[in-house]
Design a protein around this nucleic acid. Structure first.
Lengths: 222, 222
DNA sequence: CGGAATCCTCTTCGATACTG
DNA sequence: CAGTATCGAAGAGGATTCCG
């Protein structure tokens, strides 16, 4: 069966023909921070069901957005990762994240909460400020999971795993990072309250610079 | 019945909870160029069905993205328009459009084709170059429908209707504009082939500047 | 463990017809 | 025109099972 299409010769419609179905962009979000195994994806997409995940992955593979690979030893696990075309969806996710940040109030009852989602939100906040930022690398330890954000040449990369030689290591809870990224809490508040703290820092200014980049969102988004 | 939600405390998921359903972002695309009546929306979203359009509009109204208004006299028609929150979705549409441009080949058999979609695609191309651009206004007459693009202070606005005092008026066919916006055809080619032409211009350089802004995409997107 | 396939129920979609 | 009502078709989603 051919997939459903809007049947419009339009750039936006064509994009949505490919990545507009339910779960698809969240699947891309999961892969944005690095390759993932099938069961990792299942865990990051609560409620999707194995059949649907299989179907989406197959469609994305056919469209050249996702690729199956085997991780180098000693891992050796079969994983899914984004192709270049898939990674070029990053600006879409970033804008969605920035828009969604304004709608994100307090967690509702029984809503899932994962460290990786805070990493994506942080990435979209830094993205807005990266143009005027110096080259810098931050490591985030969010509820035990480790990510790093590299800011360089106006671009931003957020990936899972530790950074080598980070300028700053920040430790905190998922909800605190999300509250800051969504502009619900000023970064200094979070630091003062102890829900976010610098654990290692190359120089004292690194934390200040990091917080300054997170700052504009708090005031900017209405 | 509450609407379906991913149930994730995540900025991206929250955005998709609101605008992730089928047709919703295309509906926003339609309103991006200005207020529209119900039947205009139906015409711009072939295949949607009246019940679904009604439902989507109602949901968007409840979420503060769309507002019902009456156009000032002599029009006096009931229309739907974007709120500020709705308009802030523009970056999302722009990025989707830029991503989709790379996938947009030649029109497939029986695909719909509307002038307004070319206007949206043009807007997303200009958006990338607006930061370094001077203040300028272009009027586009696409298969008889009139739009204008205003570039000012790094921002871009694309709306339906004529511009007052445009620096340049460009006339052409929908498909030609889309081919250029998608990078399938270099702007000078389109001009040489006569499928796009300047009908009025404040100075001779206006067309050159306009084409230069359209140029980088042709080479940039694979 | 990593997935694919099946079954069943529910919701949503999409097209048409109908009403204020 | 601007919607509501209706109904068959398609997709979502949860459980379970099978296979390598």
């Amino acid at each position: 069966m051919g997939k459903r299409s809007y049947g419009q010769y339009c750039t936006v419609a064509r994009a949505l023909d490919v990545i507009g179905e339910r779960w698809t962009l969240l699947l891309v979000r999961e892969l944005l921070t690095g390759p993932k195994r099938f069961k990792d994806l299942l865990a990051g997409l609560p409620g999707i069901g194995t059949n649907l995940l299989t179907g989406r992955l197959k469609a994305l593979e056919e469209d050249g957005i996702v690729r199956r690979t085997v991780l180098p030893p000693p891992a050796g696990s079969r994983v899914y990762e984004l192709t270049d075309l898939g990674r070029s969806l990053e600006p879409v996710i970033v804008e969605l994240s920035r828009w969604g940040a304004g709608l994100l109030g307090a967690p509702r009852g029984e809503e899932d909460l994962r460290p990786a989602w805070a990493a994506v939100a942080l990435r979209s906040v830094f993205d807005a400020e990266a143009a005027s930022a110096p080259k810098e690398t931050y490591e985030f330890r969010i509820d035990g999971e480790v990510f790093h954000v590299r800011i360089e040449g106006g671009g931003v990369e957020a990936r899972q795993g530790p950074a080598d030689d980070p300028d700053l290591v920040v430790v905190g809870a998922t909800e605190a990072f999300l509250a800051v990224a969504a502009g619900r809490m000023r970064p200094e508040e979070a630091v003062e309250a102890g829900s976010i703290r610098a654990s290692e820092s190359r120089d004292d200014d690194a934390l200040v610079r990091c917080l300054e980049m997170l700052q504009p969102v708090a005031s900017g988004s209405g």
